[in-house]
Design a protein around this nucleic acid. Structure first.
Lengths: 147, 147
DNA sequence: GCTTGATCTCGAGTCGACTCGAACTCCTAG
DNA sequence: CTAGGAGTTCGAGTCGACTCGAGATCAAGC
């Protein structure tokens, strides 16, 4: 049997996807592989480039907060093939909105943190300048509790 | 004792912060309150506006992925008052970087999802147009496995 | 033949952040 | 006086996503 050029062991797939070997088996069990994973001699898993591609998509979706059950649903729809495009699109649109919401939340947080950073930097600069001028100025108070 | 205008019950604080009553007690126990929470008659917690402000900051930090132990560390530094500004600033800078990294990851993910959305929309539009023209065109294949 | 390292299955353990429930105390309204 | 609702403490339970470990198997190199 011609062993295809692209055949990969679970370890190689782990390297290429950034997932652990354990996680790969776990994902398979959770039904997020596109199709059944081929097995080589000795029952070892054999992956193709397609599997790697699918897994990398899964990694992206996970990395943006999609829970595994939802990824499984998407996988099932894709597996069913033609006729499920509308559902797949709807799922992706929902996820895109979730991603947008996350980005918005992060943006707001970043602004607040940024503001605090500036306040601290100004205060420390001020204190440094004071120390330079006065050689004994204690740090300015009032940076504590208030947001 | 003059009951201050701003005194709030745990339930009111829950409303104002979006945290649950349970979570508020949990946060207190985890040491992320700025100071010890006052107690009213019958041992009930009494919060002031300052507490709400601090909690809202905690909510923002949590919402951007800062783990509770790190929030506790920040709280301890703030509690110690003057002299810890440099450490607080360093902590905030680190967190800002973490936030930036998250945003970057989300941005990349969003692009990928967006691309897939466009592909599906085009395909569905095409199918719709086909159906209009041909009245029997099946959905275009090739939307399955490839990323 | 023997060791080494990767793989296999299966079940259990971990971690973070809450969440829940039980049993009790209070205050207020009717 | 009593019923309801909000509060208290404490410990246990939950959830998601892995992670880990034990014990067995397999392929290659010395």
């Amino acid at each position: 049997m011609a062993e295809r050029e692209q055949d990969l062991s679970i370890g190689q797939v782990a390297e290429r996807t950034g997932l652990s070997v354990h996680a790969l088996r776990f994902y398979e069990q959770e039904g997020v592989m596109f199709g059944p994973v081929r097995r080589g001699p000795g029952g070892r898993r054999v992956y193709g480039e397609q599997d790697v591609g699918w897994l990398n998509l899964c990694v992206v979706l996970r990395g943006s907060g999609m829970p595994l059950p939802e990824i499984r649903r998407y996988t099932e729809l894709a597996r069913q093939g033609p006729g499920t495009e509308r559902d797949r699109l709807a799922l992706l649109l929902r996820h895109r909105e979730a991603v947008d919401a996350q980005m918005e939340q992060l943006r707001r947080c970043r602004e607040i943190v940024d503001h605090k950073v500036r306040v601290y930097e100004d205060a420390l600069d001020g204190a440094a300048a004071l120390a330079e001028a006065d050689a004994a100025g204690p740090a300015r108070p009032g940076l504590g509790r208030s947001a």
